[in-house]
Design a protein around this nucleic acid. Structure first.
Length: 434
RNA sequence: GACCCUGUCGUCUAGCCUGGCCCAGGACAAGAGCUUUUCAAGCUCUCGACACGGGUUCAAAUCCCGUCAGGGUCACCA
């Protein structure tokens, strides 16, 4: 049975790189019908915080990576000490006192030899143990070092595949020495390429948001983020980009994971998010949106028409980059007084449209069936009578109704805005004296 | 500095193992145009890469060697 793990340390939020490591472990477990284990590496007592633990768990859940078992290294301190003392007894380690500090560290003595790693993604990598210093196992304060705790835990938790970032390649020979010293079976290793920022180098706050939670707040869909992250170092091989997680699991093979570091491109993430957004269930989008709409005072409590909101969401869905675009772009449906973009006014409403807008109001008034088809027919007929092209009037009307030059089709806007509000907004541009 | 990893369009990649179908395919971005209603949607087109140099071979993006470049690691952090 395949057992993989994701082992974050709660000294910060879950970021893009961590999410990617979690994703590849999780998808491998799914593909192999194995177990995905979560291990919180909280041995650094000073920097570890409960709020980070909570945030990491929330982010993993949001991304859809369910885990089967949870461990905290902080609760296993005695285990590490037992194993270190065993090495001490066997003469494979020695103790050392650090200056005048209390306590003694336990240090593993490296013996020169060649260490081979057969990496599932990179093939064979060889190291000379001579280039590696003696390794601290237990620090003077009694807590284990990362490499030691990691080995003891991976062995005891019966982890079969260690899938982690490239930056751990040089830890691998150190860990292999410890497995062998302890007489524990070696797992398979697979090292994923790193994700870099647009300017090269590590993905950092400078290059934009890195916390998974921030992406959620910005209105990205978990499915889109996961799909994008997966594509950053893996491809199904048939030129498809938008690929559902179930199918990805079916096609996933760790041997096809790329070796090259990938640059995180926010623009492509945006595109991916739009791909998922346009096919998303409007009900689900609405659930995400309602709290925002309430907060903006666009709707009140539970006093709103869910069906008409759903229609609105559908209207905007194909053009949304993030969920959060909706409240901005559809604001004119909710606001009593809309702001007209000054440039839009300048471009389309600089001349007087009293005659046309007035006629339009009358026509809309006389429509017995205020629905999409009749609205459009009536509008176009009126333009013909005025001897103008429809678009000469469409743009000014759109600006008058929405305050914007872009948006959904005008007739949909009129239909969903309703007869009264449409007339009201148009009337503001009708000069009575003229 | 030492050790290690990696090198296909600006970016993500397919192809590389099992040389010829690749004067290198797709996607994002960018640019141009179409859509007798806008675009931030849709459609069409354009731009654009095998890091470099040697080999091996009838034939190399694909195999070998070297160079260069980028990245990672060298903590009683994880």
């Amino acid at each position: 049975m395949v057992r993989v793990r994701f082992a974050p340390s709660p000294t910060g939020f879950l970021h893009i790189g961590g999410a990617r490591t979690a994703l590849f472990n999780w998808i491998y477990a799914q593909a192999q019908s194995g177990k995905f284990i979560l291990r919180i590496e909280d041995t650094d007592v000073l920097r570890s915080k409960q709020e980070y633990v909570d945030e990491i768990l929330d982010s993993l859940s949001w991304l859809g990576f369910k885990w089967d078992e949870t461990y905290f290294q902080g609760k296993r301190i005695s285990l590490y000490r037992e194993h270190a003392e065993r090495l001490l007894k066997e003469g494979k380690a020695y103790t050392e006192k650090l200056g005048d500090k209390p306590g003694e560290a336990i240090i593993y003595k490296v013996t020169p030899r060649k260490i081979r790693v057969d990496d599932l993604i990179r093939g064979r990598i060889e190291f000379e143990a001579e280039t590696i210093k003696d390794q601290v196992l237990i620090k003077s304060d009694g807590t284990p070092t990362y490499n030691f705790a990691c080995v003891v835990d991976d062995a005891l938790m019966q982890i079969t595949h260690v899938i982690r970032g490239d930056d751990h390649i040089s830890n691998t020979p150190k860990q292999i020495m410890l497995y062998e010293a302890l007489g524990l079976p070696l797992p398979y290793f697979a090292h994923l390429p790193l994700i870099m920022g647009m300017e090269g180098g590590r993905l950092s706050k400078r290059t934009g948001a890195t916390g998974i939670w921030e992406y959620r707040k910005m209105g990205y869909l978990a499915e889109a983020l996961v799909n994008y992250l997966l594509l950053l170092s893996w491809a199904p091989g048939d030129n498809r980009e938008v690929i559902g997680i179930d199918e990805a699991i079916r096609l996933f093979d760790i041997k096809n994971v790329n070796k090259t570091a990938a640059t995180f491109d926010p623009k492509k993430l945006d595109w991916m998010n739009n791909q998922y957004l346009k096919n998303a269930d409007p009900e689900k989008l609405l659930d995400e949106l309602i709290p925002q709409l309430i907060e903006k005072n666009y709707i009140q409590g539970d006093n709103f028409d869910r069906n008409s909101l759903k229609s609105l969401v559908k209207l905007f869905q194909p053009r949304l980059t993030t969920i959060n675009d909706f409240p901005d772009w559809a604001d004119f449906f909710f606001l009593k007084e809309i702001d007209i973009d000054p440039k839009a006014r300048e471009k389309y409403l600089s001349r007087d449209f009293s005659r046309e807008f007035g006629a339009l109001c009358e026509r809309l008034d006389s429509l017995s069936d205020f629905s999409l088809g009749p609205i459009e027919d009536s509008f176009r007929k009126m333009c013909a009578e005025f001897g103008i092209e429809a678009k000469e009037l469409i743009h000014p009307v759109r600006v008058a109704l929405t305050g914007k030059t872009v948006g959904p089709g005008l007739f949909e806007v009129i239909y969903y805005l309703g007869r009264e509000r449409t007339k009201e907004r148009l009337s503001k541009f009708i000069n009575r004296e003229g």
